[in-house]
């Protein structure tokens, strides 16, 4: 029952209504100048990109197994069962490991602030937990951004591809990337042509570090026995040679 967003690049008209709605929902300023910025940042959590005659939309992918939440040393980022990855600014100490770890380079930082926070889209966690759709989906006049259950949206995306196979690239971006994301993309052209990263692994990224981290108890216990044992042997040797009056 986890929620997701389906963005259909073939339907998007680039009106940027989603940007305006997003800014309003976060209480961020929004004017023509900010609208012209085609990248997400600490003051713009979603952005419409132009790629030739195609549009694309950037926002936090709210991964099914998010790297950011796994690397956060203080647990400021959490994957909710509802789907959104939420952020608690009161916990964050600003190590920026989430930014380094994110395969989509989504988290932004308030670089010039003296008490900076990380900023990213949280898929309107509050609205969705009240049963409302995300601000961007509500604002979209053409249905290019749709908010709903992930499974239902995947089924719908597959149906759209099946109905008009010549209009679509034929794959859903976000289905398998890094183990699946809560933002899904449909496109007329291969995804790298609308600015999406296609070199990301299909494996969930938290696995890469957990494989090593889960060895910690083994290393500690084996190491204690080994080092303690070595000390026990060498200490005995030293004692014996001291008694025998030998000099080491």
């Amino acid at each position: 029952m986890s929620k997701a967003i389906l963005y259909d690049s073939t339907l998007c008209i680039g009106c940027k209504a989603c940007e305006g709605a997003c800014a309003e929902r976060w209480g961020l300023p929004y004017d023509d100048k900010i609208a012209a910025e085609e990248k997400i940042s600490a003051h713009k959590l979603t952005a419409i990109e132009t790629h030739g005659d195609k549009f694309s939309r950037r926002l936090c992918m709210n991964c099914v197994q998010p790297a950011c939440a796994s690397v956060c040393p203080v647990g400021a980022l959490q994957k909710t069962t509802l789907g959104p990855v939420v952020y608690d600014a009161d916990k964050c100490m600003g190590c920026r490991y989430c930014m380094q770890a994110c395969p989509f380079q989504v988290p932004s930082y308030e670089w010039s602030s003296r008490l900076p926070r990380m900023r990213k889209c949280d898929m309107c966690f509050e609205r969705q937990s009240q049963g409302k759709v995300t601000a961007c989906a509500e604002a979209c006049p053409v249905g290019a951004t749709k908010n709903g259950d992930r499974d239902a949206l995947i089924a719908e995306a597959q149906q759209r591809i099946a109905e008009k196979p010549d209009q679509y690239y034929g794959k859903i971006y976000g289905l398998k990337e890094v183990g699946g994301t809560s933002v899904l993309y449909l496109s007329a052209v291969p995804f790298e042509q609308i600015g999406l990263r296609t070199n990301v692994p299909l494996e969930p990224l938290p696995e890469t570090t957990w494989r090593v981290l889960e060895l910690v108890p083994d290393v500690v216990s084996t190491g204690s026995v080994l080092l303690g044992g070595i000390w026990w042997i060498t200490n005995r040797r030293a004692e014996v040679s001291k008694k025998e009056g030998k000099r080491r």
Binding site: G75, K91, Y97, T209
Partner: peptide, 10 residues
Amino acid sequence: MWNPHSVMFE
């Protein structure tokens, strides 16, 4: 504030 899954935490 613990997150044992985080390398940075360790």
